[in-house]
Structures are given as C-alpha cells and as structure tokens.
C-alpha cells in the first residue's frame, strides 16, 4: 500500500502522450464523467480542489478544477471548453487553446483511469 496524495495535474500541461495512450485522447464530442472511484473534494486546508481516489490524490490548480467540475457525464469536451471560455469572459483567451487544454486534461484523467469507461 503505497500512496500519494500530492501528485499534481497542471493544465495547460505539456506531458507528452505515450504512443499507447494516444487512443485515449478524447475527441471534442467525447462526454467525460469522473470515475466512481474518484471524488472531487474541496480542500479546506489549501482552499483548492483535489481528486481523491484509492491510493492517490491529485491537487488541481484552478483551471484544472474548473474542467473537472464539469466532467459529470452531461457535457462534451467541446461544451466544457465553451463554458470555460464564457466563464473567463473579459480576459484574453484563445478558445482553441482552451479546448486543447480540456482535451489534454481529459486525456490525462482517462490514462489515469479516472474517467468512467
């Protein structure tokens, strides 16, 4: 039983995808839903959000948390990206970049087995 709860996901991430993992790269129409073993939890100690699952946890930064909160099985990757663009209305954002970030993070979650299959 070795566990870690301080591993972090950062988005936008530049983690190179392993060849075998490419198949898990989501399309814009993919509807991600957090796996049932994973729980999104607000951390009152740090003020941030975490995903907790059996032997690990991930500390999410703000933008990752905004994405993960929307991985509830009702929205597509494209819709999540669009919502986030709207939510940060007023600041300079490149919608295409936001969508790439969502694809990246969702792919990362899928590779970690954190999305419902």
């Amino acid at each position: 039983m070795s566990a870690k709860v301080d591993e972090r996901v950062e988005t936008p991430g530049d983690v190179p995808l392993e060849p075998s993992a490419r198949s898990l790269e989501p399309s814009p129409s993919f509807v991600p839903r957090l796996a049932k073993k994973a729980r999104l939890r607000h951390d009152r100690h740090s003020g941030g959000w975490m995903i907790i699952y059996p032997e690990r946890g991930l500390t999410l930064n703000e933008s990752a948390a905004e994405i993960v909160k929307r991985c509830d099985g009702t929205r597509t990757v494209a819709q999540i990206a669009a919502e986030i663009v709207r939510a940060i209305d007023g600041q300079e954002v490149d919608p295409a970049q936001v969508e790439r970030d969502v694809v990246e993070l969702v792919g990362e979650l899928a590779r970690k087995g954190l999305l419902e299959r």
Binding site: M1, A3, V5, E10, H45, S46, G47, T59
Partner: peptide
C-alpha cells in the same frame, strides 16, 4: 497552484491508516 498547507514545521498528512 495553491501552496500546500503545512502544520507548523510538520508536513501535512493526507492519509490516515
């Protein structure tokens, strides 16, 4: 990115066994 909360000089425990 939020800083990890530390309790005094001790590290923060995340898991209770």
């Amino acid at each position: 990115m939020t800083a990890q909360a530390e309790i005094g000089a001790a590290p923060r425990p995340y898991t209770l066994i």
